[in-house]
Amino acid sequence: MQSPVPYFVHSLTALSKIIDKAEAFAEAKRLKPEVIPQLRLIADMFPFARQVMIATDHAKGASARLSGTENPSFPDTETTLAELKERIAKTIAFIQTIPDAAFEGAEAKIIAIKAGPRELSFPGAQYLHGYAVPNFYFHMGTAYNILRSNGVEVGKVDFLGG
């Protein structure tokens, strides 16, 4: 299996740059540091901070599980944009330690995970392409949309990391 790391790194780098724009927006609007991380699209969805946490969890979790590497635990305590950027940087630093060779044969591994109350099991390729990557981009996209809907000037090129 080809390593997913370069793709996660590319998108996480874009997410970090989007947060740079959110920081500039918050400063210009004189918002308290905790405001943007708590913004939501709608009341029953996770706030911006949690969207970033989940996106990073999918990137590091998929990379670790598919490579047979221990998945580091991050405590989910970030409350500011700066802390969220640090989490992204920690995720990138971790996944970049995994050599491409560690993913050889990963498409045939059986990946078992717990998703809420459910236990799920997938062959490696199905896990990556049908679960981890779609979840990663769902939460990354939701984080982007929260910022965009609240006036942060970001566009498709920012999301794509162009």
Rank of each mutant, 00 (worst) to 15 (best):
P6T: 14
Y7H: 10
Y7M: 12
Y7F: 15
V9H: 04
S11K: 04
S11D: 06
L12E: 05
S16D: 07
I19P: 01
D20L: 09
A24F: 04
E27P: 00
L31M: 15
K32Y: 08
E34M: 06
V35P: 00
V35Y: 02
P37Y: 12
R40W: 00
D44E: 14
D44Y: 05
R50C: 04
T56G: 08
H58A: 10
A59K: 07
K60E: 14
G61C: 11
G61K: 12
E70D: 15
F74Q: 08
E78W: 09
T80Y: 12
A89F: 01
T97G: 09
P99T: 05
D100T: 13
A101Y: 01
A102N: 02
A102Q: 02
E104I: 13
G105V: 11
A106D: 10
E107T: 13
A108E: 13
I113F: 03
A115F: 14
A115L: 14
A115S: 13
P117D: 15
R118D: 13
R118G: 02
L120C: 06
P123H: 11
A132I: 02
V133G: 01
F138Y: 04
H139P: 02
T142E: 00
T142C: 03
N145P: 00
R148P: 00
N150C: 06
N150D: 08
G151R: 12
D158R: 13
L160F: 11
